[in-house]
Design a protein around this nucleic acid. Structure first.
Length: 566
DNA sequence: GCCGTTTTCGGCCCGACTGTTTTCAGTCG
């Protein structure tokens, strides 16, 4: 899959062109790069299927960039880029990532002081060479020193699950500050994207200065990057950047909308506004200089002839052109069907997990420990599984108000056999099959292997379908159209796995699957009572993939659910 | 370089903060 490689090349081309003072092209290349990043299908497949025209049809990609993509697929190189690279000395792109440095300053530094990388910059600062440059003062020098430190420390993006709770805690502390009337997270966090670059927080108050002063003194704050009366940027102790915007009540809706993004969604909305003779900014929707909508997001969407668009959908990915579904909501889930215990590699007992699930108001929960082949996770053999089934019966007699289903996460062997005998399969309620070994298979073999396992009469759920891990460990090669069709035709269900580090089916796959009328089950794959709370991340993913309540079977009541799965 | 419900040319989102060149350019989100 060359999407990311190409996106990175285009970002670099944009940087170099910007350094050369070329107008407009940088934006075009960046847009093409973002477009590539948002694709789930490998770009080379699109090319092999539909050729240059298929590439040209993608948003932000025209004839010239399409040809460059073609060249890269065919030769592994883009001549234009190789040529441009000669202009840009090695390591220079790091300079673009230093806060306070943009193309103009970098150009000047290069021309006047021959600064080609972060190291050059650092020694120039040490040698007090910058001060002598026109436009560079003492403060700039200081800022750049800090920028270099920040650059060295900064990790690129964080997992939603790693940031979510920190942000919640920040918001609740800000709520307690005097004069704060309202506060809310915005940005990629509000959109519940799988990864988060920084935390955006909106605050409504009549006393901006006092409030900003208090916020930058919160315990989590390590460093103040910038601070004014209406906005501030701080670095938190975990090295996440947090941007705070203070706004008046009257523009709450337009500000929330603007800061929720994403970038392309905002740009599209603003362009649509212009077409209608309006101007849209974080202060409101304007006709000439008069505000015609600003108090709520809904007001603005309405004026622009849209229904309310849920934050998770604001990706400029069809939400402004297609009919929107009524999304599954965060409290629609009635049961978690993928839960591990200390029988295999979980940390808690069956009873602990069941009680924790009951606290979440679930109607049912399935205990699904690993099967015997998965020895490393202490997989259960037949005898232990029988023992577990008996223990579940006992616990069920003690715990009322939640149905405990028996189950197992069963390995799919390389040949497609499942790691549990037919007789045992019939004894458990929820057999989930999933892949933990022999990843290195071609698409057709892998898909046949999965379909063979799912073909068992009792097996209904395919667990963590693609293991599309953030770090790309063990991605599984699947022919999705074939799998989707099989599942839809045979009443089999795909799991949306809620683990933040294991975003299995990406959003586009979910949307594709829905076209085939595939149904999902959203599970946490919990290994501890705490991770039962991961459910929201899975639901967010389902929402981003445009799932309705109807397309997720564990939104059904116990009785309906059992009917469906039997 | 891309794009089109003002379509093959001529536009390309909007505003705050910062530092410095004291009226605005550069950077950022």
């Amino acid at each position: 899959m060359k999407n990311q490689e190409l996106a990175e090349i285009f970002y670099k081309i944009a940087d170099i062109l910007e350094l050369q003072n070329v107008e407009w092209k940088p934006q075009a290349y960046r847009k093409a790069a973002r477009s590539l990043e948002s694709l789930s299908e490998p770009i080379e497949e699109i090319y092999h299927k539909d050729g240059l025209k298929g590439l040209d049809d993608l948003p932000g990609i025209g004839k010239s960039i399409a040809e460059k993509i073609e060249e890269y697929i065919k030769t592994g190189k883009i001549r234009e880029y190789e040529k441009l690279k000669k202009y840009a000395p090695k390591g220079f792109e790091d300079l673009m990532n230093i806060s306070g440095l943009g193309p103009k300053k970098i150009r000047k530094l290069y021309k006047k002081l021959n600064i080609k990388n972060v190291k050059d910059l650092q020694s120039a600062i040490k040698g007090k060479k910058l001060e002598k440059l026109f436009g560079f003062g003492e403060k700039t020098e200081e800022k750049l020193s800090e920028g270099i430190e920040l650059f060295k420390k900064r990790k690129s993006r964080f997992l939603l699950g790693d940031i979510y709770l920190i942000a919640q805690s920040l918001v609740s502390q800000i709520k307690n500050i005097k004069y704060v009337e309202r506060t809310e997270v915005a940005g990629s966090l509000r959109r519940m994207q799988e990864t988060i670059g920084d935390i955006d927080i909106l605050v409504i108050t009549k006393k901006p200065k006092e409030v900003v002063d208090k916020i930058v003194k919160l315990d989590e704050v390590k460093e103040i990057i910038a601070k004014g009366p209406t906005k501030a940027s701080v670095l938190l102790k975990n090295n996440t950047q947090c941007d705070i915007r203070v706004i008046p009540e009257s523009s709450y809706g337009s500000a929330l909308m603007y800061f929720t993004g994403n970038k392309d969604h905002n740009i599209s909305l603003r362009k649509l506004a212009i077409k209608k003779g309006y101007k849209l900014s974080e202060y409101g929707l304007f006709k000439d200089s008069e505000v015609i909508a600003s108090k709520t997001e809904n007001d603005i969407y309405k004026k622009l002839n849209f229904p309310y668009i849920e934050p998770e959908l604001r990706n400029n990915d069809g939400e402004l052109t297609e009919k929107l579904p009524k999304l599954i909501s965060y409290n629609d889930i009635k049961g978690d069907l993928h839960v591990h215990t200390n029988y295999s590699d979980g940390f808690n007992t069956i009873k602990d997990m069941v009680l924790a699930a009951k606290k979440l108001n679930y109607e049912y929960v399935a205990i699904t420990d690993h099967s015997k082949t998965r020895a490393i996770a202490h997989g259960l053999d037949d005898n232990i599984l029988l023992k577990q089934i008996n223990e579940i019966k006992k616990i069920q007699s003690q715990v009322k108000g939640i149905k405990i289903l028996t189950g197992m996460e069963i390995d799919i062997k390389a040949n497609g056999d499942v790691d549990l005998s037919d007789s045992m399969l019939k004894k458990i309620d929820i057999p989930i099959v999933s892949i933990h070994s022999s990843f290195n298979m071609n698409k057709s073999e892998m898909t046949s292997r999965i379909i063979k396992a799912l073909s068992h009469e009792n097996v209904k759920i395919f667990g963590h379908p693609t293991a599309r891990l953030i770090n790309q460990r063990n991605p599984i090669n699947i022919d999705f159209p074939r799998l989707f069709k099989f599942c839809a035709d045979n009443n089999k269900f795909l799991e949306i796995n809620s683990q933040p580090s294991r975003l299995d089916l990406n959003d586009i796959h979910i949307r594709e699957a829905l076209k085939y009328k595939v149904k999902f089950v959203i599970n946490t794959d919990s290994h501890s009572i705490d991770s039962l709370n991961y459910m929201k991340y899975g639901i967010a993913q389902a929402r981003r993939g445009w799932c309705t309540k109807n397309s997720v079977i564990n939104t059904l009541s116990l009785k309906e659910f059992l009917n469906k799965i039997k």
